Computed example of a mutant assay.
Amino acid sequence: MIKVKLFDQEHEKDLELEMNKFLAKIEEKKLIDIKYNVAAITEEEDEQIYCFSSMIIYKS
């Protein structure tokens, strides 16, 4: 069965840590792909908020 695991963080280091914890739990041969995305949103007073997200596709 193919599954996905979604991750979403405001800081790239938090995303990296969360993903690495998950990847340590699955066998390398079960990993299919990793998708990565960054979004930036400008709020009032020119403050930018970032959203770092990823999706790991793997076999269970």
Rank of each mutant, 00 (worst) to 15 (best):
M1N: 03
M1D: 06
I2Q: 10
K3N: 04
K3A: 05
V4Q: 07
V4G: 00
K5N: 03
K5L: 02
L6M: 07
L6A: 04
L6Y: 09
F7M: 02
F7Y: 02
F7T: 00
F7W: 01
D8E: 08
D8W: 01
Q9M: 08
Q9K: 12
E10R: 01
E10F: 04
H11L: 09
H11V: 09
H11M: 08
H11G: 02
E12H: 08
K13H: 08
K13N: 07
K13A: 06
K13W: 10
D14I: 05
D14Y: 04
E16W: 05
L17C: 07
L17R: 11
L17F: 09
L17W: 06
L17D: 11
L17K: 14
E18I: 06
E18D: 14
E18S: 09
M19W: 02
M19H: 01
M19I: 03
N20I: 06
N20V: 04
N20S: 13
K21A: 08
K21D: 10
K21W: 04
F22T: 06
F22R: 01
F22I: 07
L23M: 09
L23E: 03
A24R: 08
K25M: 12
E27R: 10
E27T: 08
E28Y: 06
E28M: 06
E28H: 07
K29C: 12
K29G: 11
K30E: 14
K30G: 00
L31G: 07
L31Y: 03
L31H: 05
L31I: 14
I32V: 15
D33R: 05
D33E: 15
D33K: 06
I34D: 07
I34E: 08
I34W: 03
K35H: 11
Y36S: 12
Y36N: 12
N37R: 11
N37P: 08
V38W: 05
A39D: 11
A39P: 02
A39W: 08
A40V: 15
A40Q: 15
A40W: 10
I41Y: 14
I41G: 03
T42C: 10
T42A: 07
E43W: 14
E43L: 15
E43Y: 15
E43C: 12
E43R: 14
E44N: 15
E45A: 13
D46S: 11
D46L: 14
D46P: 01
D46Y: 13
E47A: 09
E47Q: 12
E47M: 10
E47D: 10
Q48L: 12
Q48K: 13
Q48G: 04
Q48N: 11
Q48H: 10
I49E: 15
I49V: 14
I49G: 07
I49M: 12
I49Y: 14
Y50L: 13
Y50N: 09
Y50H: 12
C51Y: 10
C51N: 15
C51P: 00
C51Q: 12
S53G: 12
S53Q: 05
S54W: 05
M55C: 15
I56V: 15
I56D: 03
I57H: 04
I57D: 03
I57K: 02
Y58N: 01
Y58T: 00
K59G: 08
K59A: 09
K59V: 04
S60H: 09
S60W: 06
